[in-house]
Design a binder for these strands. Structure first.
Lengths: 193, 193
DNA sequence: GTCTATAGTACGATAGAC
DNA sequence: GTCTATCGTACTATAGAC
């Protein structure tokens, strides 16, 4: 019925959602198979071990980010718009669902328990996103659209730490905690020093 | 041999450390008992269910923070010093060990999987810390020691989100990611607008 | 590519002796 | 307060039929 690719993609979709909702160690092959109406052996066929599954989740997310950041519609934006677009995607992919974390945040929290091959993938993903953000901040300051002192890399680190942290803490403080926090962060970037 | 209180405290100490290193769902009664050279039934004697244990971890942390913030040595400090003292404790209790998370961060990441009674305690702990920080920020701005726009509560939210986020991401990016990020955050608070 | 069946392990929790 | 012993459950993973 379903082609090989269909099932594999569906497994990845669900696994990624569960990882962000509950954590990588908190969902099982049984969760995946029952939800997809297949047997757990079928999941093992596509991803022999959970290590393979975890690595594939992160690999796919990296490709997705690269594709997104290379879209003409994104590349043509001014720095401030790029940052706003990033924040919008971040909000929609996470807070529009019931407090899913971003993959970086979920991975970081569980990092010591993750398979080593998966840890390597996560490092690559984090470096890619941080590099892109640092470039946007650099460009934004040059063009007088964003205001901050210090290095663009450090500012990008504050930015992504705040987003990821606020997203996590919004599980305790509610959605308004996230919006309040991010609005404050954003406003500080627009202040004229 | 060991008094009742001794063992109970030792269990709490170890459980809290494991929760911050690996996550609440990632350690077991077997981990606790083997490390403490007792049997898992002994742990169940002190904390019948893992819910009880989790609740006790957070309760104790709340008392610890209240005690700390009520110390004369802390209360006598100027706002900027208070914030610096908070950051120093945060660094020493977390990054001086091998990337332990703070209890708030660890709890937030695993929140949906935590026992409900534990979730309530976590909310209380987060509110207490956030309230204290907001007061420090308010006072700091009044006395011209800290610079920020917007509400003190929002600034406190950014502050704690950034610390918790940077601590988590430092598991991916190393200790220098944390120090870079927090230094940037700190410098922004001292900038004269 | 998906199934049935199952091995092997780890978990939280409890009963009852000391 | 700690022990031995054990129950019931859930997990990752594999062998072999279809």
């Amino acid at each position: 019925m379903a082609t090989r690719t269909d099932t594999k993609e569906k497994i990845l979709d669900l696994a990624e959602a569960l990882m962000r909702e509950k954590g990588f160690g908190e969902f099982s092959y049984a969760h995946l198979s029952s939800e997809l109406n297949i047997k757990n052996a079928a999941v093992h066929y596509h991803f022999p071990s959970k290590d393979d599954l975890g690595k594939a989740i992160i690999e796919r997310a990296l490709q997705r980010f690269i594709t997104w950041s290379h879209l003409d519609s994104i590349k043509e934006m001014r720095p401030k718009e790029k940052l706003a677009a990033f924040m919008e995607v971040y909000y929609k992919q996470n807070l529009d669902y019931s407090f899913r974390l971003c993959l970086i945040g979920s991975s970081a929290a569980a990092f010591p328990a993750l398979p080593e091959r998966m840890q390597q993938e996560v490092k690559g993903l984090a470096e890619t996103i941080l590099g892109w953000l640092a470039q946007v901040f650099e460009e934004g300051r040059e063009k007088w659209e964003l205001n901050f002192n210090g290095s663009a890399k450090a500012m990008a680190s504050v930015f992504i730490s705040t987003l990821a942290g606020a997203l996590q803490l919004s599980r305790i403080g509610g959605k308004s905690f996230y919006t309040t926090t991010v609005e404050q962060l954003w406003n500080q970037l627009l202040v004229k020093h």
